[in-house]
Amino acid sequence: MSIQIIKQGMADSIQDNGRYGYQHLGINPNGVMDPIAATAANLLVGNDLNDAVLEMHFPASVILFKQQSLIAICGADLLAMINDVFVPVNTPIIIEKNCVLHFKKPLSGARTYLAVKGGFDLQPWLGSYSTNTKAVAGGFEGRNLKKHDEIRFRAAVQKYDAVLNGKDCEILQWKASVKNFYAAGNILRITTGSEYDWLNEDAKKLLLSSSFTISNQSDRMGYRMKGDNLAIENKQQLISTAVTKGTLQLLPDGQFIILMADHQTTGGYPKIAHVISADIPTLAQLNAGEKIQFNIIGQQEAEGILFDQQQQLQQLQNACSFPLLKFKQQYAIN
């Protein structure tokens, strides 16, 4: 059985944790913008943490469920409803067959993730379910989802009649608390880039003291930032090298772009800094118009924060697997 898109969202796509091993061919990793939210959605329904999820923005897809399902919605709170019942984020939910999941209003965050128990029945491309819209490959037909698309489930049909008891949905009684995974106050931590020292002293100060606004020209490829111009002393031409998610590329006009999940594999602009991996989820949940500030930390510290984050995610998985197991036992579900 399956879900069907009955109204197209703005730019909704299938993603997993990314496609690695092909950047030497110019094929970039893609993958979810917010790996914390995507992982939380998967762990709440008991999936593999790298299973494909549906990444959505507001206005989001309207989705018809053609079978009973265990689902979770994590990330941005877009005021989700199942038929006429409000349902929370970060909580497992059982949805009845022929019910419609829709989103009313963006309350917080920029991207929300839908995981269904058992995952989606799709063909991986080069080892990943992530959508590469440029290559028109991966995900669902290599493109964003549109009206009438039907995505089949991988797992066998489960019966949740006893849980639903005639209702459209049942909100289960545990949550994945993810607040602590996100940086407070829109202050993102960065490490210095290979051309950081090209910035003059004023520019170095501005990078840390000034706030920068996410412009409208921001998407899955990168966030174009607006703020004080950062001047460089070295005007020499750089030759292209590999870039990565989180790289701050300084443009000739003194403004910069922060590379996100769909970034190109190489670039020739000065790399002045890098948002640390652990703060990418925070950045992924910010919208155009929001302001951010930066704080420089060391390479080792950045690694340590990422490692701790992954450990906490592991603990969260353990904490959520227990109630899920009890629930399955109670209703004799696989």
């Binding site: 950047q23 030497h24 991996s277 490692f307």
Partner: peptide, 16 residues
């Protein structure tokens, strides 16, 4: 990932 460029080679690794 291992990514050769004009005059460099970049190695992407699993920190965790």
């Amino acid at each position: 990932d291992i990514i050769p460029a004009y005059a460099s080679v970049t190695v992407v690794y699993d920190v965790t």
